[in-house]
Nucleic acid binder design. Structure first.
Lengths: 340, 340
DNA sequence: ATGAGTTGTTCATACGTATGCACAACCTTG
DNA sequence: CAAGGTTGTGCATACGTATGAACAACTCAT
């Protein structure tokens, strides 16, 4: 017994009005007499009427879906961010459609396929889409928002950009380590470094350099094989065996820091922060747990998500205003891995 | 310059055929001569044609969207599971639409609104939908799949159910603790316990009871305020202060276990597993980290996700076959929190 | 050579909504 | 009371696709 959904025509028939009137009754800014609207609503309720989004999309040439494009969902911080995006997208009246481009073809063909859905917007949180495909969205006035993917001087024209203050975060980390007396500094980033990691490293090194004028500081730059806990764990194994133990380390990602910390403690019996100060980046949940209590540069996924969706809405309102570039601030969260 | 998307009519014009022929060219099981199909594909490629899913949905009365309904995305394990669902849904040719029902109205009105999208299926991973709303989906032959929500004897008719072996996991935990010599057992679940936690507890207690015949065993049942790390941390504070320290504890969720462990170590200077054996449930990532190395009952989100989507596809094929009930096995992951 | 069956294509239509246009009924103002 | 303005409703159409029915061009067996 495959029941059919009630349509606006059904509601119209029951309320004794035309289909147009039903449609207009659900549109705030249409002129409808209160009496008619009431009748329509009553009929709609009785039939359990729900608008057909597909039909609506056909007419409006735009669905209420927002594509959230990510490359891989394993990284817990990435998924934490994605979740905030989901919440915010939903809060502002859209529906989140998640697209994972790793277990799939490349990002470009994935994006190409997204043209099928008349999206209200595309949020790209990882991967590097080609210019042509992005242009395709922009030329059909579908907002494209890049998160932590590129600079303001990006060669992708017409896209909006939201970044966190990666450089500032790196600088903040450097300042904090130096201030707590560290002299042999190390900065760790993942081998296949993302844009954000590069910027964080850049900020860190810049800041160290500017302090080198007044104080002698060593700095080494190191790469972790992978950008997760295991990567940090292994890295510590390789580095600390050589006895060249730095006294202050900045990690571009908390996960690497936690893995490194575990290895330093268990395998090399180092005390943190007595033997070595550590600062991470992101402020993942793990960082707040007692076993780690990691001092870190916190970025707030909630803030970033809000910035992204606000941006998207604004862009839908004014399709041809100039591209937006927004930087969300970061803060230092002081816990127990920084010598005082 | 708001460009228009190429339509099948555009492709038809370029290829010199009718719109129907274009449509049929993209349909595997339509009879089209190879020559025509080639011409159509060439034209489609030249125009960058992408089918309009909204129009397709109108005709087929079914979109390729699958609704993934969850209540809250904070819990990392829940979000890990959701991510696997996203991947699997995508892998099998659908698109995941995520619906979070916490930052929203209740689950029923959220589900009601989902009728707007002509979904290919709804996966419910948390919350308890009312029978009537579920019936509404079922009567429109939209598959509804409940994950870890209910028993086979559920009063919700027409839905398919996928569970993990919660009871079996609880039993396994009990066996392991008893086998390693524990006698004063404790089982911890969250205050507002979910179906899964109740089943896990049930399995644990059952198993303990059956061993009580041959050996004297104490068992206490305890509730954590919240089902996260902090809940476990606080709980340990309350319990261990009373000096009634059990020698074997089973936690319905890893997070609670980790919080408990941290508190036991830092605040009460207990050694694990010398003073106390711990077993968790889920096998979250954190459990594998050196600082915790938690012995736990592992459930595999990948397996569950596959079961869910396989089920969904089968149900779409045979809308009126009898409801399916599937139980995904769990395994014991032995790490360092179980005395040997 | 005739009829039946097969293959490949086109025509026409339906899906459910939003919206420009037309128009009737009413209100306002002089 | 006339002319112009406002308000509320209906009619007709467009959006882009899939698909049943019709049909033409072949194939093949009789």
């Amino acid at each position: 017994m495959n029941k059919r959904q009630a349509t606006s025509a059904d509601v119209a028939a029951l309320a004794g009005v035309s289909q147009s009137t039903v449609s207009r009754s659900f549109d705030e800014k249409s002129r409808i007499s209160a009496a008619t609207r009431d009748r329509v609503f009553a009929a709609a309720k009785e039939l359990g009427y729900q608008v057909n989004k597909a039909a609506q999309t056909m007419i409006k040439q735009r669905s209420d879906l927002v594509g959230l494009v990510t490359a891989g969902l394993e990284d817990p911080f990435r998924s934490e961010f994605l979740n905030q995006l989901v919440i915010e997208v939903q809060r502002q009246g859209f529906r989140p459609m998640v697209i994972d481009v790793t277990h799939n073809q490349g990002i470009d063909s994935s994006l190409q396929a997204l043209m099928q859905y008349q999206l209200s917007g595309v949020v790209i949180t990882s991967g590097s889409p080609s210019e042509s495909i992005v242009q395709e969205f922009v030329s059909r006035s579908v907002p494209v928002i890049l998160v932590n993917r590129a600079d303001q001087e990006s060669n992708l024209s017409g896209v909006d950009i939201v970044n966190i203050d990666n450089v500032g975060g790196g600088e903040l980390a450097a300042k904090s380590l130096i201030q707590s007396g560290c002299e042999n500094l190390m900065v760790v980033r993942a081998k296949a470094s993302s844009y954000s990691s590069l910027m964080r490293t850049k900020g860190f090194i810049q800041q160290v350099s500017s302090h080198s004028a007044i104080k002698t500081l060593n700095i080494t730059e190191v790469e972790s094989e992978t950008s997760d806990y295991e990567g940090g764990y292994q890295l510590a194994g390789q580095l600390l065996a050589k006895q060249e133990v730095p006294d202050g380390v900045f990690f571009c990602m908390d996960h690497i820091a936690c893995g490194f910390m575990d290895a330093a403690r268990k395998e090399f019996h180092l005390s943190i922060p007595q033997d070595m100060s550590l600062i991470g980046f992101d402020d993942i949940r793990l960082a707040s747990y007692q076993s780690y209590a990691l001092t870190t540069i916190k970025q707030c996924p909630k803030l970033v998500s809000k910035a992204v969706v606000d941006n998207l809405v604004k862009r839908l309102d004014e399709p041809s205003s100039s591209p937006m570039y927004q930087v969300v601030p970061v803060t230092l969260i002081r816990r127990d891995t920084l010598a005082s």
